Computed example of a mutant assay.
Amino acid sequence: MTATVALVDDDRNILTSVSIALQAEGFLTRVYSDGEAALKALVDNPPDIAVLDIKMPRMDGLELLRRLRERSRLPVIFLTSKDDELDEALGLAMGADDYIAKPFSQRLLIARIRAILRRAELTQPGVDGAPDVGVEGAAGPIERGRLSMDPARHRTLWAGEVVVLTVTEFLILETLAQRPGIVKTRNQLMDAAYQDDIYVDDRTIDSHIKRLRRKFRAVDAEFDAIETLYGAGYRFADD
């Protein structure tokens, strides 16, 4: 099935050029020039992925993502101002799957879109109900103490409470939970979550880990299952 990409940006030159490039690669596109115009369409008729600019009038990308995350786990890539670390940190903290700083290469954006769509497919049911094979060959649900993960349904529970995760967050947690007690470096977590040899820096993984902890602590204030090994990486606690 042809994937649909929603582009939300107040710069019509970017909308036009990126839309043409995506269509040349076989994608369907929808374009919106501001967040207010996009919100209802993204919720009522969701695309496969959305690319959101942060700096927009009427409703900026951060507010659009905040409202979107109340109702949807739609994969999102943010377009940020060059070297604006605050934008990147806020976007990831609010549940964006990735970000790209302007000015950007259209080839890079297309590669990131393909990578996230492939990662999203890992969390969907297999053909004819067959179980999906996740990161490192794992198949079927994962049970680790109070944690339950079902990759086929993209469903995560902690002590019976639902924890809503983005695709990237799910894959990072799945990688850690597959082998409790084993330290995973940032590079290993990047390989699990970004499988197209696309560069992301350490800060991106750290931001996703912070977001994971925040989500779990919203349902359990004592959550401490994701441990930091300073200078080494992260591990899921081996109870």
Rank of each mutant, 00 (worst) to 15 (best):
R30N: 15
V200M: 06
A3K: 09
T16P: 14
V162G: 04
R155H: 14
G181F: 01
F27H: 05
S105Y: 02
A24N: 13
L122R: 14
P57R: 05
R153C: 15
G129Q: 10
A115L: 02
F216E: 01
R211Q: 02
I172M: 00
A177E: 02
G95M: 09
R235F: 04
D84Q: 02
M149P: 00
R155Q: 01
L92W: 03
I172L: 05
P141W: 03
V127E: 14
D11I: 09
L173D: 03
D239E: 13
D191L: 11
E222Y: 08
A101R: 11
R217P: 08
A101G: 05
M56Q: 03
V183K: 07
P141Y: 00
G91Q: 10
T123D: 05
Q23N: 10
A159P: 03
K55T: 03
F78Q: 03
P180E: 13
F216K: 00
V163H: 10
P103R: 04
A237R: 07
Q195T: 05
D191Q: 01
T204Y: 15
E70S: 09
I49C: 12
R213W: 09
R30W: 02
R114G: 10
E136L: 08
A152M: 04
A21W: 11
S17G: 14
H208V: 07
I226W: 03
R69G: 01
K40D: 14
L74G: 02
L22Y: 07
V76S: 02
R186K: 07
G35N: 03
A177Y: 01
G129R: 02
R155P: 00
L42E: 03
R12V: 05
A232T: 04
T168C: 09
E143R: 07
D191T: 12
W158F: 12
L65F: 01
A6H: 00
V164Q: 10
V76R: 00
H154Y: 09
I20W: 07
E174G: 01
G231M: 14
I226N: 06
G160E: 00
D84W: 06
I14Y: 11
I182T: 08
A232E: 14
A152F: 04
M94K: 15
L90N: 04
V200W: 08
P103K: 03
T2I: 05
R114W: 05
V31D: 07
R203H: 04
L64V: 13
R66T: 12
H208K: 10
T29H: 10
F104P: 08
T80Q: 12
R73V: 10
R112I: 04
D44S: 14
A120M: 11
L62K: 14
I54C: 13
T80P: 01
Y234M: 13
E136H: 09
V219D: 14
A225Y: 11
L212M: 04
D44G: 05
L15C: 08
T185L: 15
D9G: 10
I182R: 04
A101P: 08
T4K: 09
G35W: 00
F78R: 02
A159V: 07
R211F: 03
D10R: 06
T4V: 12
V162K: 15
I20M: 05
R203G: 06
P180M: 15
